[in-house]
Design a protein around this nucleic acid. Structure first.
Length: 424
RNA sequence: GCGGCCAUGGUGUAGGGGUAACACAGCAGAUUGUGGUUCUGUUGUCACGGGUUCGAUUCCCGUUGGCCGCCCCA
């Protein structure tokens, strides 16, 4: 093979697109139900947009960004996630302000230079939402509810919603100190990764899955116990709203998210039907980001959903539906019939009937076979005799019934019964 | 960035130092104007580069890519 798609990228082929459209459609529908409106930002940004927001010490910034200089030497980066872009766009276009509530959603490809594996690609797709302008815990609950509703609409089960609070810039430093103090003596018994985490970001130790480390982690102080009064109140009230909405969740005081900008609420939806990469949705509040990116202080919250991972689950559930949308296939014999057939073909399309034709001048048998494979509902067969009569055979491919219909009446015959393959 | 496994027609697989087997799909045909069954034919530089050898698709090394795990994340 001379050319192949770059490592970690995948073609989405016609057989897959119905499922993609289903997923994307469900996202749009749910988001719009909650009155979020679509925003589309460029696929690349000035590198600073990401380094400043995501954080220099995160893996994304340290080793996963697709960064390149353009022809004038400016450093650009393919977006590894969308939140930073949305904040940039919102600020640039004056959509974000403290006294204005902005709710937007996006859908599209993201890029991270990572080693591909199950549920992980270098170009992958996310759908997400961002809401700016409110620090009310009600909004946190609603955002989580929206994610849950979406997964319901998609027919996903066996999901778990994990929530936690990572505090704010006022109370987190004290917690980090407490963590350090706690791990100070134990860390030497723990894995070498944890040793490194201890220096860089002790919060990450909580994420470690190594068996020997677990017993130390289990007794480590939890952020929820170190929240200041306001953060504690925020978390309590959000949980209250979630209970009111009857949303099942698990408080996971070990949940730490990988981007630096999160404050207070952090949540994740994980699937039991996936392998190691089991998070299908991750999000949280980022009350300081807008200000850090040069705006006024505007609280915000959002989440992102990994579409490939949703796809993987749906594939396992076998929800692949691949109905044809061809209502009419026009088969012809001979050059003259072909001209007439092609003319009827375009008339059919003008009338909104999805129609197809043979482009290779093949035998009638081959045309019938093609129509069959396309699962066309009807085939209109035009031969020499039919040309003289200006009337040809319309065959119902499912029942195999066929009868004659004049060229002039073909389209009208269809408009009544909706031969377009749509669902009614 | 690290580790394990792998790489044969469109797809899924078999094989093995002397130029590849099977199934399915595709295409063509089986009294030349009708599909889903059957039968026949047809489809491959055995990932790429180098080495060992009289000879490599088969053995060795490297590269690239895939799968899975670690890290991290969606």
């Amino acid at each position: 093979m001379k050319y192949a798609a770059p490592r970690g990228t995948k073609d989405i082929l016609p057989d897959d697109s119905p499922l993609w459209q289903f997923i994307e459609g469900a996202c749009r529908e749910t988001f719009e139900l909650f009155n979020y409106r679509e925003i589309r930002t460029p696929i690349f940004e000035a590198t600073d947009v990401f380094t400043r927001s995501i954080g220099d010490s995160t893996d994304i910034v340290k080793k996963e960004m697709y960064t390149f200089p353009d022809r004038k030497g400016r450093s650009l980066t393919l977006r590894p996630e969308a939140t930073a872009s949305v904040v940039r766009a919102g600020l640039e276009n004056n959509l974000i302000s403290p006294d204005n509530l902005l709710k937007v959603y996006y859908l599209g490809p993201m890029f991270r230079y990572e080693r591909p594996q199950a549920g992980r690609q270098r170009q992958f797709h996310q759908a997400g939402v961002e809401a700016f302008g409110s620090n009310d815990p009600l909004l946190d609950a609603e955002v989580i509810q929206m994610a849950v509703n979406l997964f319901q609409a998609l027919g996903l089960k066996e999901l778990e919603v994990d929530i936690n609070s990572v505090g704010c810039k006022k109370c987190r430093p004290a917690y980090l100190e407490a963590l350090k103090k706690y791990f100070q003596e134990n860390v030497k018994h723990m894995c070498k990764d944890c040793l490194a985490r201890f220096e860089i970001n002790p919060l990450r130790i909580l994420d470690c899955k190594e068996e020997p480390c677990q017993k130390y982690i289990a007794k480590a102080p939890a952020m929820v116990d170190h929240l200041d009064a306001e953060c504690k109140e925020h978390f309590k009230r959000m949980v209250g709203w979630l209970d009111g909405l009857e949303i099942k969740y698990k408080i996971n005081d070990r949940l730490v998210r990988g981007l630096d900008y999160y404050t207070r609420t952090a949540f994740e939806v994980v699937s039991k039907q996936l392998g190691a990469q089991n998070a299908v949705c991750g999000g949280g509040r980022y009350d300081d980001l807008v200000e850090e990116m040069g705006g006024k202080s505007v609280p915000a919250i959002g989440f992102a959903i990994g579409l490939e991972r949703i796809m993987e689950i749906l594939r396992k559930l076998n929800v692949e539906s691949r109905a044809s949308n061809v209502g009419l296939y026009i088969a012809t014999i001979g050059d003259e019939a072909r001209k007439v057939g092609f003319d009827l073909l375009s008339k059919a399309r003008d009338a909104g009937i999805s129609a197809d034709f043979d482009y290779q001048g093949r035998s009638l048998k081959a045309q019938m076979k093609a129509a069959d494979r396309l699962k066309a509902e009807y085939v209109y067969i035009i031969g020499e005799e039919e040309l003289k009569k200006r009337s040809a055979i319309l065959k119902n491919m499912e029942t195999a019934d066929q009868h004659e219909i004049a060229f002039d009446e073909l389209i009208d015959n269809f408009s009544g019964e909706c031969g377009c393959g749509c669902e009614h």
